[in-house]
Every structure is written in structure tokens, then in C-alpha cells.
């Protein structure tokens, strides 16, 4: 088992600086150039904010219940 673990460690392919500038691989360049990706990021952020806000509300509600029940 130890042998197989060290075996996989040697097979690593390193990511080089060229990978970041490689124009042959297609990426969402136009989406970014048009700035539309920010709209998507904004929409996802709003959804996540809504969910997290709900979580905070549940948390507060439980805190209030804890106070009420523990005082009685």
C-alpha cells in the first residue's frame, strides 16, 4: 500500500505558468470581456445571501426559545 501511494506521488503533473496564458484552451473569455460574468456572480451572491439570512433568522429564533424555556 505504501508502495502504491508513493507511486501516485511520482505521477504528478505540475501546473506551470504557461497554463495560465495558454490561449489554445478555450475558456469563457468573451463572457468575462463583456462583463456578463459579474451578473452571474451577483445573482449567485444574492441567492446565497438570502439563504444565509434565513439561517441567521432561524438561529435567532432558537436563541429566543432557549431563553424563554430556560427561564421557566
Amino acid at each position: 500500500m505504501l508502495f502504491s501511494l508513493s507511486g501516485t506521488a511520482q505521477d504528478k503533473i505540475e501546473i506551470t505558468k504557461d497554463d495560465y496564458t495558454n490561449q489554445e484552451v478555450e475558456m469563457a473569455d468573451r463572457l468575462r470581456a463583456d462583463g456578463k460574468i459579474y451578473v452571474v456572480v451577483l445573482v449567485i451572491s444574492v441567492v446565497m445571501a438570502g439563504i444565509l439570512f434565513y439561517l441567521v433568522k432561524i438561529d435567532r429564533q432558537i436563541s429566543r426559545l432557549e431563553k424563554e424555556i430556560n427561564n421557566n
Binding site: I15, D19, Y20, T21, N22, Q23, V25, M27, I37, Y38, V40, V41, I44
Partner: peptide, 8 residues
């Protein structure tokens, strides 16, 4: 979503 990633 926005930060640089390698182009693989």
C-alpha cells in the same frame, strides 16, 4: 468564479 485559474 472570478479569480485566475490555469487553462487546461
Amino acid at each position: 468564479l472570478l479569480m485566475d485559474v490555469p487553462r487546461l
